[in-house]
Structures are given as structure tokens and as C-alpha cells.
């Protein structure tokens, strides 16, 4: 039967003309929630890490809900097009957003007029704490200390792959500020493009999650300098933290989190909290998430909101300083 549930996404997409008619007024009462299939809006294309993790979560959540949780990919404008769909939706809990720090960066870079607090924040259900820095295997750099020394010797010369305004971009801004260094931040695109850029020697440094780099580390093409966390990442246990290598530099994990339209009744959110807790405790779910190279978690809406608030404050500050530096030039 679960195959049929998967098919629902397709059926829903294809029969949407009909669905548009159904999703009008007269939404079901919160206490009966969910009375019909829930759309989980993923503001990214099919096949990426946001999409895949959402699919795994939805697969397990719909078993507990007893109603299909249908993945709807709405990409564009760095995630804004998707989040806006939920922002503008009816507050009935049938259009729910699944996203990560992009909800904050979109606001800080002025793409979206709202941030995480334009929504009711739900639980964080999956994390990726393995964001690390990589350099070429032949670069001679072995630790973050080496990188900092090199950047200090040649300010603004180390080409560092990033995607402007994205999560890793703010990581690099933070690194520059805390360590007093100047890198040459080069936009090369997403994870696949970054990997090509470092492999092809077009850039010197790359921030990326650990997944997909293991082969290159084993083959000697890449050296991983460490992860930007207080503790080693469970999904990259071999990689030391920066602190272990002697430099105190920490950043956030990717927090895949559920968001609701701002006026959604608490009963709906409570239903999701219960489901998220049950799903997180399910060993088959944990195994499925681990296969994706990510970490299954449950973080309460309060914890999640605190985490997003911290990112918001930090990114706004970093963006302001960046603008001031640019203004002086």
C-alpha cells in the first residue's frame, strides 16, 4: 500500500486542476486533523538533499498520520517561491513547509520579506552537522591552522568556493571575521559544482557537507580540514572538529525543519510534534536517514525557533559588516 501512497504525489500533481477546486474554504476542523492528504512543500527540486530527506520523513510520517503526506517540489528564487506558497496558504495545516536555514538566508539577502518568524516554527526532524572545509589533496594544507596561515600570508588570494547568500556563504564570512583573514569568495554554485571546482583546481577551498566526498578523500584528491561543530558529526565520525585541530571555529548544522502558516491552530502543530517524536524514535526511520548521510533528530519547536533566531541575528550582523567593508572600498 505504501507504494500507492507514493504514487499520490504524482496523482496529485497530475490531477491538480481538480485539487485546486477542493482546497477552497471549509477546511477541516483542527481536531480531526488530518482529514485529507497533507502537502509537504519542498522549496527545492527533486533529487537534492532537502528533497530526499523530506521524502524519507514523509514516508514515515504518513504511516503515523494515517493520511498521505505528499511531497510537492516548488523551486525557484533560492527557495522563496516555495516558502511563499505556504506563507500565503490557508492556516489549516494542509500546506506545510519543509526547509532549512535557507528561510533565514533568503530574508537576510533581501529575497524574501519574511524570515523564520513569518511562520509558526515546528520541530526539526533531520540535521546535517557535517559541514566541513576541504582543500585539494596536493595543497600542502592539513589543518584549518594551515589555511589561516596561508590566507594571512596572501590576503584575498585563496579562492574559496561558495554560493552567494547561501548557508555556506555565511559560514565563510564568519570564518573571515573571527580569524581576521581575507579569502577570495567565488560563487561556483551548488554542491556538485563545488566538487567539480575543487577537483578541477579552479578553487583552493570548499565548504561542503561530508556526504559524497569520502571517495575523494580516500583517493587523495581532497584533504578535509575538519567540521565546524563542537562535537564530531555522527555522520562523519572520522573527521575531527576544528577545535580538535587547534582552532576554535564553530558554525551551525543544516536544520531540516517543519514550518506552518502563521495562524495555524496549535492543535495542528501539536499533532505534528507527536508524529515527529514517534518518527524520530522509529529505528527504520533512523536507518533510512542514515543511508542519506544525515542525522535523524527531534528538536522541539522552541529549540528550533531558538536556533533559527540565533542564525538570524548572526547572519544579519555578518551581512551588515560585509556591506560596510564593501562600502569602504
Amino acid at each position: 500500500m505504501s507504494d500507492l501512497n507514493h504514487l499520490n504525489k504524482s496523482v496529485l500533481s497530475l490531477c491538480v486542476l481538480a485539487a485546486v477546486g477542493v482546497a477552497g474554504p471549509g477546511a477541516a476542523l483542527a481536531k480531526d486533523y488530518p482529514a485529507k492528504p497533507i502537502e509537504l512543500i519542498v522549496p527545492a527540486g527533486a533529487g537534492g538533499s532537502t528533497d530526499l530527506s523530506a521524502r524519507v520523513f514523509a514516508k514515515h510520517a504518513q504511516k503515523k498520520f494515517g493520511k498521505p503526506v505528499v511531497i510537492v517540489n516548488i523551486k525557484g528564487a533560492g527557495g522563496y517561491t516555495g516558502s511563499k506558497t505556504v506563507y500565503d496558504s490557508a492556516p489549516d495545516g494542509y500546506k506545510v513547509l519543509y526547509t532549512h536555514a535557507g528561510i533565514v538566508t533568503n530574508n537576510v539577502t533581501n529575497t524574501a520579506p519574511y524570515s523564520y518568524d513569518g511562520f509558526k516554527v515546528g520541530p526539526t526532524v533531520i540535521e546535517d552537522p557535517s559541514l566541513a572545509l576541504f582543500v585539494g589533496g596536493q595543497s600542502g594544507m592539513k589543518t584549518l591552522g594551515d589555511l589561516i596561515a596561508k590566507a594571512k600570508a596572501e590576503p584575498g588570494k585563496l579562492k574559496t568556493a561558495t554560493e552567494y547568500g547561501a548557508f555556506t556563504y555565511f559560514m565563510l564570512l564568519k570564518l573571515q571575521k573571527e580569524q581576521g583573514i581575507q579569502l577570495n569568495l567565488v560563487d561556483v554554485g551548488g554542491d556538485a559544482d563545488k566538487t567539480v571546482a575543487l577537483l578541477g583546481g579552479h578553487v583552493d577551498v570548499m565548504p561542503k557537507v561530508y556526504l559524497g566526498t569520502e571517495d575523494y578523500i580516500d583517493a587523495g584528491d581532497f584533504t578535509v580540514l575538519g567540521v565546524a561543530q563542537a562535537k564530531r558529526a555522527p555522520n562523519a565520525p572520522k573527521v575531527p572538529t576544528f577545535k580538535e585541530t587547534g582552532i576554535d571555529f564553530e558554525y551551525h548544522e543544516y536544520p531540516f525543519t517543519i514550518f506552518f502558516q502563521k495562524d495555524t491552530p496549535q492543535a495542528v502543530i501539536d499533532a505534528w510534534i507527536k508524529i515527529a517524536q514517534e518518527v524520530a524514535a522509529d529505528p527504520t526511520y533512523q536507518k533510512d536517514v542514515e543511508k542519506l548521510g544525515m542525522v535523524p533528530v527531534y528538536k522541539s519547536p522552541e529549540e528550533a525557533a531558538k536556533n533559527f533566531a540565533a542564525m538570524q541575528a548572526e547572519f544579519v550582523e555578518l551581512a551588515k559588516e560585509k556591506a560596510e567593508v564593501a562600502g569602504q572600498k
Partner: peptide, 12 residues
């Protein structure tokens, strides 16, 4: 995405 779901690590 299909590779990852099946636990295969894409790479060289």
C-alpha cells in the same frame, strides 16, 4: 538521489 536512497555513495 536514487543512489543515495539505496545507500550507494556516488564518486570516483
Amino acid at each position: 538521489g536514487g543512489f543515495l536512497i539505496h545507500g550507494l555513495t556516488p564518486g570516483p
